[in-house]
Nucleic acid binder design. Structure first.
Lengths: 124, 124
DNA sequence: GCATAATATTCCGACATCCGAATGTGGTTG
DNA sequence: CAACCACATTCGGATGTCGGAATATTATGC
């Protein structure tokens, strides 16, 4: 494949989109928006995140056109743009479940290399 | 807020998996393995990547259990473990297509001047 | 207009990822 | 075993990402 072919550009953009999924907080946000729009404040409360940090993550999802937002009064409501995003999310989660079932992976390489903790939430 | 709840750990691992998709070269690899196993050397030739770099990316996919590998003679063959990975790949590519159609986010602007902070990953 | 609430953006130090070069490892061939 | 081949791993510097604090923006109520 040529280095700067249109195909290569497509993979770059695809990766650019996927980077939005490559962070636990943003996955949590997507999962929270699964059943409809949510106001930023409510999300922050429920997720136990700082306002600034949540807003930054929402900004990333917004820049990549994965969520849309509208003002309503003094609040801003975010929602998922495309339901296929949820389907992709769920597919990857299924893959993850099977990976975890196959071998004892959790106690192996993962925990060693990722010390980052997270606020809790939600249904699995 | 329990920062180490099982739910949070799940999102962390989900993100850890997604990071494998968050790079154009690894997406290209996944696409190349779509129709069956491939030897490392063939992949390197076809993609025009350095041996070292390809091997590092394969190592990441392998560590996350997204591909499996087997020796055969002096070659090593890689393949996708779970077809749902391909489905997720395709879903996200569809979402990308529509995103690009909605706003004219790409056309002409991707290569010359970046409207939103699109990352330039040097060379593919 | 002023004060306040809700959200966004900027700045910056800490940490993670990327890639090439060099080096290591295991299998094959003579 | 020695020389190669196919591939993996390590090292290091450049570059990118993260999150908190501070600051800016946009509405609402008075």
């Amino acid at each position: 494949m040529e280095r700067d072919s249109p195909a290569a550009a497509y993979y770059e953009m695809h990766a650019y989109l996927c980077k939005a999924l490559a962070h636990p907080v943003r996955l949590l946000i997507i999962d929270q928006l699964r059943d409809g729009p949510q106001a930023v404040g409510d999300l922050a409360d429920r997720m136990g995140l700082s306002q600034s940090n949540l807003s930054q993550h929402l900004g990333i999802l917004r820049a990549k056109r994965l969520v849309s937002h509208r003002r309503e009064g003094s609040n801003v409501y975010y929602q998922i743009r495309d339901p296929r995003l949820i389907r992709a999310f769920d597919l990857l989660r299924e893959v993850l479940r099977d990976v975890l079932r196959e071998d004892d992976w959790l106690v192996g390489s993962f925990q060693a290399s990722t010390p980052a903790p997270l606020p809790s939430l939600g249904r699995l």
